[in-house]
Design a protein around this nucleic acid. Structure first.
Lengths: 349, 349
DNA sequence: CTGAAAGCGCTTACAG
DNA sequence: CTGAAAGCGCTTACAG
């Protein structure tokens, strides 16, 4: 069958197998297997004997064989949204860190797939082979994304958990930040600071992240009877250039709002840059706030007042929930977990 | 054996197996297997029959079974250096994008492991199980890192390729940016602009990335007989705060250099911020340049003159080289590939 | 071109 | 507590 096991590119001697260890200690393979992966079901002395032999011989189990046999891969597949030419979003990266740490802790592997939300042909998941992962973690997946990549519970045939975006209506357990509440509090802060004419800068009006944030903004405005006087700008993109574009619209206004809440830190930075270039002072002429609390937010000039999300914690919680579902510890019921955000006051607003 | 196949968390019907397809078309499993993974070795009509049945029945192969049988996982393991509490370096992220794209193109999976260079106990690789990946891609691994994580050709038992850092002396094929040349050209540019007293800002004097960059800086200085008059500052960290620290030392100087080359963009941004706060003008009082050409470099105020590295391309080339070695297309000889850098002129210098 | 058989390296009921 | 056996779902020389 595979006498030429190990490709031409390999280095080193052939791997030690379970059978080799068994032979060396004079025990059956089943006993050795148990001693290694189910130590309590074996005589303590046997256990020790086997474990020492395994260590001495440099035995490590074969992942494919084990998975094939017991039906679990102890690997999770993480789907991160591609932004085309642009680098992966720093927010997603931070969630990923949490996922790595938790997966590591539980000795799970993490397989990553970058998926293009717009590209219908990226059927990476429609034909997801079996035996590759026990579950799927979707980070910041849009509805379109979920549909196009086959990230539905049925078509994947694997449990799915969504992070950062709420897909409980698709029967997918989701862990999100309290985006609406975050913007509600930020808006409160702006109103308390005396602002009466506010603006909101979004990227696309119906984007997954824009909807709850804008809702929180409007809700707070309504509570102070200010909802009729606000303005909403569209940058068109969730990044620095998007903020610049929005700032142009802002500058063109005859009667400008005195405070603007941006959908993200990157957008806020672009907005600030443009209004500063136009000679305005931030926050004196216009207060500008962001959302995300990226590493760079503290270093911006002026430093950004923003909403901090527990990205790392969402990653940890997501990995844990998914693994618990995979192992049957938790049911796959479409629960929604909302993690608290916190307002970070700095110079820009 | 595994009658309870599929964990309690799974969704959907049991997977279709090769044998199911075989039965449905009245052919042997071997023929079906060939028709699907080695189409040329089968009668065209048979092929079509099988492929249609497979599609109709929603068959996808089982990755574990296939790997176990043919000895290849078609997966690469990527080791990215952990920065502790900090987010993964944006440079590494961009390399990763290239890796994803190329792996995808070749239908390879990408398994990620974040490894802590300082943490000796992170023996993630020492006990790397077989059947998990065909090769390892190490991104920006330091020597210490490689040693501690068992990333040596012998101990991993798998081919390794190093990206961004040169480990050919450890018999590891490496793909790096022309860092020395990049700084040589940047320094040329500064000298041509009339600067005669220059400074270099490093993070740690013997860091993998500092050595070649500083060497390029010094070499160019020497060519103009300027090597005795330069200053080197240490920020201690490869980030914004590191640049701030270095700027303090700079400001304390009685006779200050007129141009400073920083080891990275983040460091340059910190440096600029601090000297601006001290009332200096950039580039008029002091010209400051970075290295990396991060997305934010263009948005900094002033925008950064810097050295651009082909990070995405290095990722693509790295994945391709590793896969070629795994499949035996290329030998695992410790070749060194040096990708060209380019000087990006903006406002800061 | 196709089929029957052996084998990849594990795990896990089932006996004892 | 341990062993013998069957089985996970594929692939691939080997015959025909």
């Amino acid at each position: 069958m595979n006498s030429t096991k190990g490709n031409s590119g390999d280095a080193g001697a052939p791997r030690v197998r379970l059978a080799d260890v068994a032979r060396s200690v004079g025990l059956n393979r089943s006993t050795v297997s148990r001693a290694l992966s189910n130590p309590d079901r074996v005589n303590p002395e046997t256990r020790k004997l086997v474990q020492e032999a395994a260590r001495r011989m440099g035995y490590t189990f074969n992942h494919s064989a084990r998975s094939l046999s017991n039906g679990r891969t102890e690997t999770i597949l993480v789907a991160v949204p591609s932004r085309g030419q642009q680098s992966i979003s720093p927010v997603v990266i931070d969630v990923l860190r949490g996922v790595f740490d938790e997966a590591n802790r539980q000795s799970y592997g993490v397989l990553i797939r970058e998926a293009n939300p717009g590209d219908v042909s990226s059927r990476a998941y429609c034909a997801l082979p079996g035996g590759i992962a026990d579950g799927i973690l979707s980070i910041s997946g849009t509805a379109q994304h979920m549909r196009h990549t086959g990230l539905t519970v049925e078509s994947a045939g694997l449990p799915i958990v969504s992070l950062l975006t709420n897909h409980v209506s698709r029967q997918i357990p989701s862990i999100v930040a309290a985006e609406e509440q975050g913007l509600y509090e930020l808006t409160s802060y702006l109103i308390d600071a005396g602002h009466r004419k506010l603006a909101y800068v979004s990227c696309a009006p119906d984007s997954e992240h824009d909807v709850p944030r804008y809702r929180g903004f409007c809700r707070r405005l309504a509570e102070s009877g200010l909802e009729d006087d606000h303005v909403a700008f569209m940058g068109g993109r969730l990044d620095f250039p998007g903020g610049v574009v929005a700032a142009e619209s802002f500058l063109a206004l005859s009667e400008r709002p005195t405070a603007v809440a941006c959908v993200s830190d990157e957008v806020a930075m672009g907005f600030i840059r443009r209004v500063k270039d136009a000679g305005l002072q931030v926050p004196d002429d216009v207060a500008v706030a962001g959302y995300d609390d990226l590493a760079g937010a503290a270093y911006n000039c002026p430093s950004l007042t923003t909403v901090s999300q527990p990205t790392y914690e969402i990653g940890v919680a997501g990995a844990r929930l998914l693994i618990d579902i995979c192992t049957g510890l938790t049911s796959a019921s479409p629960q929604l977990v909302i993690m608290p955000t916190t307002l970070v006051r700095r110079e820009s607003a």
